[in-house]
Nucleic acid binder design. Sequence first.
RNA 1: GCGGAAAUGGCGGAAUUGGUAGACGCGCACGACUCAAACUCGUGUACUUAGGUGUGAGGGUUCGAUUCCCUCUUUCCGCACCA
Length: 926
Amino acid sequence: MQEFDFSIIEEEARKKWSEKDVYKVNIDTSKPKYYVLDMFPYPSGAGLHVGHPLGYIASDIYSRYKRLKGFNVLHPMGFDAFGLPAEQYAIQTGQHPAKTTLDNIATYKKQLGKIGFSYDWSREVVTSEPAYYRWTQWIFIQLFNSWYDKSVEKAKSISDLTAIFEQSGNVGVQAACDEKTPQFTAEDWKAFTEKSQQEILMHYRLAYQSYALVNWCPELGTVLANDEIVNGVSERGGYPVERKKMSQWFLRITAYAERLLQGLNTLEWSDSMKEMQRNWIGKSIGAMVSFPIENHDADIEVFTTRVDTIFGVSFIVIAPEHELVQKITTSEYEEAVLKYKKTCAAKSDIERQQEKAVSGQFTGAHVIHPISGVKVPVFIADYVLAGYGTGAVMAVPSGDQRDYLFAKKFDLPIIQILDAQDEILEEANPTKEGRYVNSDIINGMAYQEAISTVTQALEKIGKGYAKVNFRMRDAGFSRQRYWGEPFPVYYDKDGIVRVLSESDLPVTLPAVENFKPTSDGKSPLANAPEWVNELGEGQTRETDTMPAFAGSSWYFLRYMDPKNENEFVSQEAQEYWQDVDLYIGGTEHAVGHLLYSRFWHKFFKDNNWVSTEEPFKKLVNQGMIQGRSLLTKADSIKGMPAGMHIPLSLTGPGDKIYKEKLIELTKADNRFAHIQPDTDVNWEDIDGKPFISLQFEVEKMSKSKFNVVNPDDMIDQFGADTFRMFEMFLGPIEAHKPWDTNGIEGVSKFVRKIWRLYGFDEAGQATFKDEASKDELKVLHRAIKKVTDDIERFSFNTAVSAMMIAVNDLGKLTPLSKTTLETIPVLIAPLAPFIAEALWTRMGNEESVFDAQFPMFDSKNLVEESILYPISINGKVRAKLEIAASLSPKETEEVVLNDEGVQKWLDGKAPKKVIVVPGRIVNIVL
RNA sequence: GCGGAAAUGGCGGAAUUGGUAGACGCGCACGACUCAAACUCGUGUACUUAGGUGUGAGGGUUCGAUUCCCUCUUUCCGCACCA
């Protein structure tokens, strides 16, 4: 009998696949298309650990399955190669990021190759290659040359807009634009200088430049997008972030806010993922209300979702940074207001969030209630955020807890406005129930009526209107970094912003010697003056670069037509491949990449460059594979309450570490250099050899925790098929689960059992019989049904289990029939491609197993007799009993309805379906 | 605080539409092979004294609930003074 050796069959299968170019995919209109996409990785220096391939294995199983089912499957892979780590590494080592990136890509491809993925590598995309990023730059130019027409909810060319301006100015234009855009007539427009015209157009462009408060990270020397900041510090590195006013590029994603929100309803994404995007977009329906300022010719505008509570307003609060603060503060309060503003400015965002104490300052100013005419004081307080709504709120202490606390502290009136509001002596009651009281024109009304009555009253006097507000901000698109796409932009001698023409693309990154930002916050590209000035005539290039999400916002389209030099994707390729049917990746991109991609895709749709409104139909988020760390207990080492991570190799017998090994570790790892083994450590056995005991913990895999498992080691030891199936076998694809190498033996055994079913003789011939027995067919078809169902519903762990059961059962029936032996390889091919190909070849097939047809389940094989049994009650046939397909007939020999069941049934109250088991009910179809 | 997901043996987990709870694997125990061990193979393995009890806790709907509804507890994830 020929022994199973995974290294031989893997080699053999690889050779066959590459000779036959099995994974090459082309447009084929005779077959339905299916597009399976992985979130492409950032090629970091650390390489892959066992957590990374989880999603790739799942997508590979599904695309192989779809292919065997007759679909033309697009399953590409590439690299998201621009980004901060490569640049940080370059600063530290002086190595060019292009080189380290290429090295890392080579490592990744080698690792991915071992696992046996069915990628069509001829379609590989690397975002940092000029042939790719020229199209990223091209898309930027298109965004720059577009505006958003709200009247038709669609992006249009900027030349359409200038035509309108020349005709009739901007009065009738419903555009997504800067709210401070001045109004002008056609005559005004024509009289403007070109520079002024360009400045006005900046208020409309979908890619525009603006001075704005941005998130500046001094440590990284760059601006960060909102989603790159976590808890007030940078996502990468955890450095503090401050607000700074800078000239920056932005993308007008807010124009698409409503469409991005509505589109979510059409997607097969997890609820939590959609909810995260909804929260980020943050739509709230409410009203704008203007409160005229006493003794000033100005109003304070507030946004509120509860305009019905307007008669409960007892004061107004504006953010300390609000632009009216200086203007309205009376001389009496000037000093106090200034002092308060200073204490607020000194606080970082985190401090401001953690600070729960109520604080604020009266400005001395008052506003007039627009309906009741009551005089109301104006305060500043940092619980009102400058960045949301108008940076001002109307305070209703009876209905809002923050307003309530503020009113208590400053001794302001708390007005009950609804009869259902009780207990407002203790806290605010935000109810919408009951009838309004103390509320002028809406007394006695209910919520809905009150809202519309107040809104209409405000509209009539020009002091308010219904308004939808979004929390989402426009996306900052400038980074002061080297390793990113240069903008196809320059400034002419008059300082006017110009984009290059398409024929000038790509704008390639210049060679620089210093990758650090300049001390005044300019991008490292400013260190290459020749490049900056090479256009001549006093023209200078933009030195900022694009953020990491630029290249990843459209890469999935490039895979459709990766070599095209004339278009970013051809019409033909795009019309065939359409969109991504299945997208697999982590949840960390919930509001970054996945939102920006949807935004760009909608922009492309407006221009008819793509044919779908959404890029990713179905999204599956793979969970994290956690590592098992060994660490010291809380009280073992002074100053390390969280415990100290210990490499497994240094532990003694049992879960403990001896003194000499710990000293070894403190010397080898400078993170622990401060530990004094004699004084800081509570040794457990001073008499014999001192040690401290350790505990296991399940946490994220990371080098610093010594809990990383390398997939290469696993594959060398157990083979790729075993590795793939074990990763799936760990649990549901979407769950977080700990890696436990012990369990891999079970899967390894299973692979060897499959091999043994073929009973290979000395000559490598399988032994089989002519006819399949009924038992054999039953086992086989039960497996076909279960594996098919499980793969369809992404339950790959149970699909592996189903195959294990089948192989165990078939093992008892050897020798098997030829039919069975030819079916098995195709059935397991998605899960274990190498052994599948090996067995397929050994059954005498020239072509690859992936050119075969996935086996069809035939229910005839599952039962021996008829599957319908009549049931009679009182001599009358009332129903037919259907045996569940997976049950064998003998299990349903005795069918008895219990008394209550029969009675309910006779009363006509029986459920539509009842399932009966031995001695009980199985499945009654009425 | 708000939103989302979840809680099942010693462990990872299964139960697809409300129908035999604990599949499959690990671990453990016993047996076969072996001088012996490892490997491999086989058998058993939720708890429990017969009876019974069991899917985080309590209640409800149902002939029947791990599954549906209500209340609560805990864990993970996301957002967080959003007016």
